[in-house]
Every structure is written in C-alpha cells, then in structure tokens.
Write a protein that binds this DNA or RNA. Structure first.
Lengths: 146, 146
DNA sequence: AGCATTATGTAGTCCGGGCTACATTTCACG
DNA sequence: CGTGAAATGTAGCCCGGACTACATAATGCT
C-alpha cells in the first residue's frame, strides 16, 4: 500500500517504534532507580537501610521490597547479608547520585513554572525517569535564567 | 525504636508512599493510553487500525499487540471482530482525545523551553503519562505567555 | 480459480513486580 | 537471660507485557 509516500511531514514510523521502545526501557529501570534513591537516602539519614523502611517509603509490602532488592543485588547495584540491612555498590551509589540530582532538578523546574510544591513532588516521581539529558539540560538552563 | 521523633523537617513518609503508588498507577495505564492513541491515529489517517500496523508503530510483535488489544476490549476501550481491524468505544475515543491533547501540549512545551524536536517527541512519550492536570495547566500557561 | 504471501489469531514461555501466608531470626525489655 | 514482638526472609500465587512458534484466514496476482 505504500502509505508513507513522499510527505513524511511527521511521525516516521520507525522512529516512533524506537521512541516507544525507549520509553519501555525507561519504565523498566524506573523501579531500580527509585530503590537506590531511597536506599541512599536512608543510608545518609539513618545510617542504615532496612527492607521494612524501604518498603514503607515505597508503599509496598516488605516481601516485594526484599524481592526487588534481590534483583538490585543480581544487577550489581546493591549488596546485603541476611538480617543486616542493605548497602549500595559503587555502581549503586553513582546511580543514586545521578537519580537524586535529576529528581531535584525536575522538582525545582516544575516549581519554577508554577506547579504547586506537592504536585511537583508527585509528578517528578514519574517524570524524572523519562527526562533525557538534553531535556534535563533545558530544565537547568531555564532555572539558571530565572 | 521510634526513628521519626519530632523533626520531620521534610518528606513525610506516608506522602512519599502515596506518590510512588500513583506513579505505579500511571505506569500501569500508560500502555493502554499508547494503544488508544495509536489506534485513533490510524483510524483517522488510514480509516482502519490493523493489529500489525499497531504493532509496528509500537515496536512490538503482532502477538503482543493482539493480546494487549484483548485487554483493551476487556476494559471497554476497544472492540473488534476477528480479522476485521480494531475500533474504539466511546470511552476509548474520549481517552484517545485526552491523551492526544496532553501529548501535543507536552511536546510543544518541551520545544518551547529549547528541547530539540526529536528529543521532545521522544521524552514526551514517557513524560506525558506522568503529567498531572495541574502541571499540564502550568505548561499551557507557559505556552500562552511565550 | 488457485496458490503464495501476508495478516491474524492462539498457545505456551519468561520475567517483573505486586500480593498473602508462613517461617525464621533479632532484639528490647522485663 | 529468656521471651514475645518486630523485622526479615521464603514460597507460592497472580497478572501484565514481552517473546517465539505454530495454525488459520484473507488477499493479491497470475
């Protein structure tokens, strides 16, 4: 049928597929990012990150948290010994820092364009995982010129 | 041990859990939104929405698309008869419209703050599902004053 | 009209990320 | 120091969303 003749004014299909694919990838790694972010925060504030606390902050059961922590360990982001709390690997710390910085920027940016603080915080939780470096840079430029 | 004594200078845990929960919800409905958006677009441009085309636009196999379409039908967003293409219900059309409007706004907004078009399009694919009404309104305000 | 190609559908698998239920370990406190 | 509550861990279930492989329907071409 050759539906996309010469026009291609927008949405070339292959690109669209790629966009969706990368959104899926972002979704997949979002959870891990949330975990390391919370673990890092708990380590910084309390000195230890216990599964129950992590679970409570995420609003899931401890069983879910423990299982996910297992995946983090498998993926080289965290390590822990039974009944001993969770710690981040080097890679985990790096990730946590990047994620935290991104989170702060997104929240600050949303606030700067007039989104109420509570909402900014909530939306950032979802948005931050889909903000590319280029977009993050745009956010920072905006904040700088504000 | 009562770890959260009186301080609570920020991040009240229950709120955080709620934020994560709603981010999870958004993630869960993101797929359905992508589907109805694409179906609506195909219906508008081609007159029909065939599973294979939907699959190609999403970058997944047709089997995946068909299964997901089954969920859309179960959820009252679409309907179809074997070998006959996919159509949207009233609810599906409404959702598609809302999603489309949101998508356009997000893309326009990102472009307005200096994100390159390609990137804006890509990031919007993920971001749009996490933008609350309040934030969307802020985007629109920004665009209006531009 | 008949056949090859393409689209559609079905079955079965895998993994992620939730949950509940139950088992085990720590630890605080009497 | 012993014990009961809280934390931790394990097992098993469910569903979503991806895949491959195979079967069947539709269609286009000669």
């Amino acid at each position: 049928m050759v539906a996309m003749h010469m026009v291609e004014q927008d949405s070339a299909p292959p690109d669209e597929a790629a966009r969706h694919a990368s959104a899926r990838t972002a979704r997949a790694s979002a959870l891990a990012q949330d975990y390391v972010e919370i673990i890092a925060d708990l380590l910084a504030r309390e000195g230890e990150a216990r599964p129950t606390d992590i679970a409570r902050r995420l609003g899931v059961t401890h069983a879910t948290a423990i299982k996910t922590i297992g995946r983090l360990k498998r993926d080289g982001l965290a390590h822990s010994k039974p009944y001993r709390g969770v710690f981040l690997t080097e890679a985990g710390h790096e990730l946590a820092q990047r994620v935290r910085a991104r989170h702060l920027t997104v929240v600050a940016f949303l606030a700067a364009i007039g989104v109420p603080p509570q909402v900014a915080e909530a939306d950032a939780e979802g948005i931050e995982h889909h903000v590319s470096d280029a977009t993050l840079a745009a956010f920072e430029r905006f904040l700088a010129n504000a």
